[in-house]
């Protein structure tokens, strides 16, 4: 019977009384290191916020106040006239219609470009990660390298090619260009995401007789929700913020907001209206900022999943 009796509890002796301190959590002490961390973060925040603050207050000041040179001080008489001017009356050379034209141009470029590049990227990612037909690695390697090569190498021949098919300086042309150059990141994004799905799922679908398209539409696409969101965020901000392609391929009628903004601000004729310029700048940044603040962590995930190997 002795083998099933408890090992004796050790005798308690000479211990401090039960509720003496130290008891419970260690009282929070504010260490210099802790203060340093927060000080660093606050100073860094001010550094990052300062330009936006300056833009905002400048855009609300009349020019008479701006000429005093008090960059950081709040407007004494706030006015929204610069915003109205930026939106509807700011001049680029001879046209004085504000940046509103650019907003609508940007939207017209944005929507088809985002849809097309995501659709192609998803199909590529699916084919490259599950079906891996001959040449998969080659196509992927070229796309990947293509993403990092300066666009300047492609530009002139592309201009010629688009001229030949009559798309240069037209909306379909700029959409095609965005689709072409969005392809590497979209393919990488979807390929990495699909590579993380269990391949057995795909094998089971094949055994069940699924074809390329049925598996894509009924199995893979319904599982792609998160990555579609990420891809949309990436493409919307990326295409909206584009300057180079818009400048070269869009044509005078379709100039996107970024190009128009630069033309407004850096126009060499007339008096510089800094308040109008800043209002126009904020207006141009508004769409991507909105996407950024609404999407939150998804935006970060887009950066990470596009950049990190899957």
């Amino acid at each position: 019977m002795s083998d099933i009796v408890d090992v004796k509890l050790a005798v308690v002796g000479g211990l401090p009384p039960r509720t003496d301190a130290p008891w419970g959590p260690k009282p929070g002490r504010i260490t210099p290191a802790r203060i340093g961390v927060y000080a660093f973060l606050v100073v860094a925040s001010l550094f990052f916020l300062m330009p936006f603050y300056v833009m905002l207050i400048t855009s609300l000041k009349p020019m008479s106040e701006i000429r005093l040179g008090n960059l950081m001080s709040l407007p004494e008489v706030a006015t929204i006239q610069p915003w109205i001017d930026a939106w509807a009356h700011a001049c680029t050379g001879v046209d004085c219609n504000g940046v509103q034209v650019g907003l609508f141009n940007s939207l017209r470029i944005l929507v088809p470009s985002v849809i097309l590049s995501i659709a192609l990227g998803a199909i590529n990612g699916y084919a490259l990660s599950f079906w891996r037909p001959r040449g998969s690695n080659l196509i992927f390697a070229i796309l990947l390298l293509g993403a990092f090569i300066p666009y300047q190498v492609y530009l002139y021949p592309l201009v010629r090619m688009l001229s030949v098919v009559g798309l240069y300086n037209r909306l379909p042309g700029i959409v095609a260009v965005h689709t072409i150059f969005g392809l590497p990141i979209m393919t990488l994004l979807f390929r990495n995401y699909y590579a993380s799905l269990p391949i057995d799922l795909f094998k089971a679908a094949r055994v069940d007789g699924g074809s390329f398209w049925t598996i894509f539409f009924y199995l893979i696409l319904p599982m792609s929700g998160p990555i579609l969101v990420v891809a949309t965020i990436l493409q919307v901000t990326g295409i909206w913020n584009d300057f180079l392609f818009g400048l070269i391929f869009a044509g005078r009628e379709n100039l996107p907001m970024t190009v128009l903004l630069n033309n407004v601000v850096n126009t060499t004729t007339g008096v510089r209206e800094y308040n109008v310029n800043m209002a126009a700048t904020i207006l141009t940044a508004l769409v991507p900022l909105l996407v950024y603040f609404v999407s939150g962590r998804w935006f970060v995930r887009g950066i990470a999943s596009g950049a990190v190997k899957g």
Binding site: L15, R18, W23, G24, P25
Partner: peptide
């Protein structure tokens, strides 16, 4: 959250 840890007779909470 509460209580003590004592190791070798020393309150190390």
């Amino acid at each position: 959250t509460g209580g003590q840890v004592i190791i070798k007779g020393k309150n190390v909470t």
